[in-house]
Design a protein around this nucleic acid. Structure first.
Length: 315
DNA sequence: AAAGGTCTCAACCGCGTTCGT
DNA sequence: AACGAACGCGGTTGAGACCTT
């Protein structure tokens, strides 16, 4: 399987695209659609290789692209999907309509990844870095809202060690992400409310007795899909791999309440805006707040430390 | 105001996969 | 089945913007 060079290097332009080139590409695709990129480049009168044209269209010119900052929900989705899928940017992008894999990859590498590292979280495994050099500094650092400090010691209940070795294992499912989100929604809300207060601000956790933890021992090779808007609950909970999903699966975990019977958590719903809707079910959490995370008062650069804080706190 | 450092993101590169002949 | 071309993906780069001192 020999690989041909992506383009003959003779005479083809590289580097930033000009407005004129963009216009040519847009007009050609609007008229003829995109097919063979190599011939498209030639026919559109562009001195570019097909690959370059494709990239320019997909990542920048396509009308489907949503530009602008990532929302809080999008960031949450990225982090959670990354914890399951790893650097499968195209798969992550497939679940964030209007966002390209390149954009998500850039955002991860330039923003999310760095903040995770600063928090002492390994961005690859999503687990706390046990050799994180200065964990104590986290207690007074602004891990959630970089502009307003949050007393993490208090978040962690004061007496508890920051890192519970039990939770150095990685998150393996979106289920527990959503579960944690549900639980911490009131906390997140409090933190976000704090953005208008002088630092430090304090928040309280929901009753820990109601905390659920993933039953990792029960982890099986069951997979399910949540990417399709038409994905229904029974499909989510099915142990059988749906035939039409082409291997694009995410693992399903079972959870149990502390000291009670096992139950399977409802999957997140998929709403029309592509963001996952959180269930307000199963009776966990403080019961005092809506599980839907609000973006309205969050900082411009939130990081979902609630997710990790909670994983550490769980026993 | 200037210099140096850091960040962002569009674009490129190279590899594996898929497709067409 | 074999081969070459094209596609698609993830990693990386580098220019320009922005920030800090």
């Amino acid at each position: 399987m020999g690989r041909a060079p992506c383009c003959e290097k003779n005479g083809l332009k590289k580097g930033p695209w000009t407005q004129e080139e963009d216009q040519k590409l847009i007009e050609y695709i609007q008229k003829n659609g995109c097919g063979n990129w190599r011939t498209l480049a030639k026919n559109a009168g562009l001195q570019r290789c097909g690959k370059s044209c494709r990239l320019r269209w997909i990542n920048y010119l396509s009308p489907d692209i949503k530009r602008g900052r990532f929302s809080f929900e999008e960031e949450q989705t990225i982090i959670q999907l990354h914890s399951v899928l790893g650097n499968k940017w195209s798969m992550i992008a497939a679940r964030l309509p209007g966002r390209t894999d390149n954009e998500i990859k850039n955002y991860w590498n330039t923003s999310i990844r760095k903040r995770l590292l600063r928090m002492g979280i390994d961005p690859v495994t999503h687990s706390p870095q046990l050799d994180f050099p200065d964990l104590s500094s986290i207690s007074t650092s602004s891990i959630y809202n970089p502009y307003h400090e949050i007393n993490l010691s208090r978040l962690l209940g004061g007496q508890q060690p920051l890192l519970n070795p039990e939770f150095s294992r990685p998150a393996t499912s979106l289920d527990n992400c959503y579960q944690v989100q549900n639980q911490l929604a009131p906390v997140v809300q409090e933190i976000s409310n704090c953005s208008t207060l002088a630092s430090p601000c304090y928040v309280t956790f929901p009753d820990e007795a109601q905390v659920m933890e993933p039953n990792l021992d029960q982890f099986s090779a069951n997979f399910t899909n949540f990417s399709s808007p038409s994905c229904q609950l029974n499909e989510w909970q099915s142990n059988e791999m749906p035939a039409n999903l082409g291997g694009d699966y995410l693992p399903q975990l079972e959870y149990s309440y502390h000291g009670s019977e096992q139950s399977i958590i409802d999957p997140p719903l998929y709403d029309e805006n592509s963001n996952f809707q959180l269930h307000n079910g199963n009776g966990f959490g403080s019961g005092s707040g809506s599980p839907t995370l609000s973006t309205t008062s969050l900082s411009p650069t939130p990081l979902n430390s609630d997710f990790y804080v909670h994983r550490w706190q769980q026993k």
